[in-house]
C-alpha cells in the first residue's frame, strides 16, 4: 500500500477523556456538589458509624423518651429507651443497602425488557410493553406488601419486592433509547461488519443508551429508600434489623408525646433522598450532551 499525503487543513483537537468533561459540568452545579458531599458523609457514617459509636441499637440504655441532648444522648432515646443515635446509624446501613440493591434489581429487569423490546420490535415489543403496562398500573405498595406478606420479610425479599414494582420507568427509557439508536448508521455499520444481535444490543447500542439509564437509576435509589421506609413503617420488615422506616413505625404511637422520635429518622430519610436526587440531577447535567453545548 502506498500512503496518501497527510492533510494540513484538517486539525486534530487534543484528546480529553469524557469523564473529565462530565466532572467539569457536574462541578458547575453547586447544589449537586453540596449534595454529593452530604451523601459521602452519610455513606461513611453508615459504613464506619456503628463500629465507632459502639452502642448496640437494641440495648435499652436509659429511660424512654429522653429528649435529644439531655442525659448524654445526642439524639435522645426512643420508646423502649434505646439510643436513637445508634438506631439511626445502623438504620442508615439497611436503608442504603436496600436502596442500592433494589435499584440494581429494577435496572437489571428494566434494561433487559427495554432492550429486547426496542431492539426486536414487532411481536416481542408488543408483548413486553403490555407486560410493562400491567406492572405500571399495579398499585405498587399493595403489590410489594403482598409479596413480602407471602414470602416473608427478609431483606432480600424486601429488596426484590421493591425492585419488581419499580423497573417500568427504566424499561420505558431503555426502549426509547434503543428505538432511537438502532436506526443510526453506526449500528447498521456494525451489522455490515458482521456483528451478532447480542453484540449489537449490549456492546454497540447499550453503551450509547447508558446516560439516561444512569440518571434514572440514581434517582431510583432515593425512591427505593422511601419505598423501604413505607414498608417497614407498616411493619413489613425484618424485625431483627433496624431501618429508618421501622424506627418511625415503632414510635408512631407516641408522636404527640415525644415528636423527636419520629422526626429525627424522618429527617434522615429526607436528607438522604434529597441528596440522592440532587446528585442525580447533577449527573443529568453532566452526562447530557445537549445541555453541555449551552
Amino acid at each position: 500500500m502506498s500512503d496518501a499525503p497527510a492533510l494540513p487543513e484538517e486539525t486534530v483537537e487534543k484528546a480529553r477523556p469524557p469523564i473529565a468533561e462530565a466532572w467539569e459540568m457536574f462541578r458547575k452545579n453547586h447544589a449537586a456538589v453540596a449534595a454529593l458531599v452530604v451523601l459521602i458523609l452519610i455513606v461513611l457514617a453508615a459504613i464506619f458509624g456503628p463500629a465507632l459509636y459502639g452502642t448496640d441499637p437494641f440495648d435499652m440504655v436509659w429511660a424512654p423518651f429522653s429528649p435529644p441532648g439531655a442525659d448524654g444522648f445526642l439524639l435522645g432515646t426512643d420508646y423502649l429507651g434505646r439510643d436513637l443515635t445508634a438506631l439511626i446509624l445502623s438504620g442508615a446501613r439497611v436503608s442504603l443497602v436496600i436502596g442500592l440493591a433494589a435499584a440494581l434489581v429494577s435496572v437489571f429487569i428494566g434494561v433487559t425488557v427495554g432492550a429486547l423490546a426496542g431492539f426486536y420490535r414487532g411481536v416481542v415489543e408488543e408483548v413486553l410493553m403490555r407486560i410493562t403496562e400491567f406492572f405500571q398500573v399495579l398499585p405498587t405498595l399493595l403489590f410489594s406488601m403482598v409479596i413480602v406478606a407471602l414470602f416473608g420479610a427478609s431483606l432480600p425479599m424486601i429488596t426484590f419486592a421493591i425492585g419488581v414494582v419499580s423497573w417500568t420507568a427504566v424499561a420505558r427509557i431503555t426502549r426509547g433509547e434503543f428505538l432511537r439508536i438502532r436506526e443510526l448508521e453506526y449500528v447498521t455499520a456494525s451489522r455490515a461488519s458482521g456483528a451478532s444481535n447480542l453484540k449489537l444490543m449490549f456492546k454497540v447500542i447499550l453503551p450509547n443508551a447508558l446516560t439516561p439509564i444512569i440518571v434514572q437509576s440514581a434517582l431510583m435509589v432515593g425512591g427505593a429508600i422511601l419505598f423501604e421506609a413505607g414498608l417497614s413503617f407498616l411493619g413489613l420488615t425484618d424485625p431483627n434489623v433496624v431501618s429508618w422506616g421501622q424506627i418511625i413505625g415503632s414510635n408512631r404511637t407516641y408522636i404527640l408525646e415525644s415528636p423527636f422520635t419520629v422526626t429525627i429518622p424522618g429527617l434522615a430519610i429526607f436528607i438522604t433522598v434529597l441528596a440522592i436526587s440532587l446528585v442525580g440531577d447533577g449527573l443529568n447535567d453532566a452526562l447530557n450532551p445537549k445541555l453541555r453545548q449551552r
Binding site: E185, Y186, A192, S193, A195, N208
Partner: peptide, 26 residues
Amino acid sequence: FIFQDPYSSLNPRQRAEAIVKEPLDS
C-alpha cells in the same frame, strides 16, 4: 459498505482503531 453520514456512521464510544478493527473481529 461506506455510509452517507460520517457523523452518525461511527460509534461515538469507540476509538478510531476499534472502529476499523470491528469487521476483522467479527
